[in-house]
């Protein structure tokens, strides 16, 4: 115990991390020392016990919550075994090629003017686009010199211009934006002036981080007769909704308020 007390909080946090103590980020120095001691006394096989003791002693809802979250996912692997990328196949050689007798020709393009944005993961997004002959001819007849540009918009703000060579193509955009709304605008640059031709659909980017806990949780009760009760965790606000009431609207408002709270506190942190 004495030795541990001499360590800085940072060191203790490191130790707690090594011992995989859940809820460590919320602990003060004394709590960290206590938790580390407790883990040391326990067989690693029975670390459940230590965690429970810890949760019980501190009586902290936050620590309980953190443990539940930590046990809810495995940071190192998100996936099921069969769905592995680029794994060497040990399967026996397959014989499909034998049966590919016909060829099915498909078009390279559809002669349309369109751009699409698709999410790949929290930091990667795929866009493909095509300009119709008509659009290309129109551009050529109007401007002597122009080049293509794609602009990425994050929650409505322009963040990233990308130079493009071809009127038909695809591109992977690397931009980390968990839960943000993104879209792209395709246009031409004429004498430093951007002229928009088309814009894509809007995507909501997947997240790879744990959101804040809600200051006020929203709970919903679904009754057998399809009446729903929506209430906040502290029970101050309660809505009853049935088919006559736009309950989705109520939840949307509640959630929007939550999100606003979270994002404003997140902005403050930055």
């Amino acid at each position: 115990m004495e030795d541990l007390k001499k360590l800085t909080k940072k060191k203790l946090y490191q130790l707690a991390k090594e011992k995989n103590i859940k809820g460590r980020s919320k602990m003060n120095k004394n709590e960290l020392i206590k938790a580390i001691k407790m883990m040391e006394e326990c067989d690693p096989e029975t670390s459940f016990e230590a965690e429970e003791k810890l949760a019980e002693q501190t009586k902290s809802e936050e620590i309980k919550r953190d443990i539940l979250i930590a046990e809810s996912y495995d940071e190192n692997s998100f996936s099921s075994q069969t769905h592995v990328l680029k794994e060497d196949s040990t399967e026996a050689p397959n014989i499909e090629h034998k049966y590919i007798k016909e060829d099915y020709p498909i078009p390279e393009r559809y002669n349309i003017t369109k751009i699409v944005l698709l999410p790949v993961d929290p930091s990667k997004h795929f866009t493909y686009w095509e300009l119709s002959d008509e659009t290309i001819n129109l551009l050529k007849s109007q401007y002597k010199h122009f080049r293509f540009v794609i602009k990425l918009y994050d929650n409505g703000n322009e963040v990233l211009p990308i130079d493009i060579n071809d009127p038909i193509g695809k591109y992977y955009i690397f931009y980390h934006a968990p839960f943000h709304q993104l879209f792209v605008v395709f246009g031409v640059l004429v004498n430093d002036q951007f002229i928009e031709i088309m814009r894509s659909n809007t995507i909501v980017v997947p997240s790879d981080e744990i959101s804040e806990f809600a200051e006020e949780e929203i709970w919903m009760t679904k009754m057998k007769d399809w009446k729903e009760i929506i209430k906040l965790s502290h029970g101050e606000t309660e809505f009853f909704a049935d088919s006559n009431l736009p309950f989705q609207k109520i939840i949307e408002t509640l959630i929007q308020n939550q999100i606003r709270k979270i994002s404003s506190s997140w902005e403050n942190l930055k």
Partner: peptide, 14 residues
Amino acid sequence: SHGIIFGKPAPKYG
């Protein structure tokens, strides 16, 4: 798991 855990807000019961 992460579809829930990275949800907004973080779920109380994981």
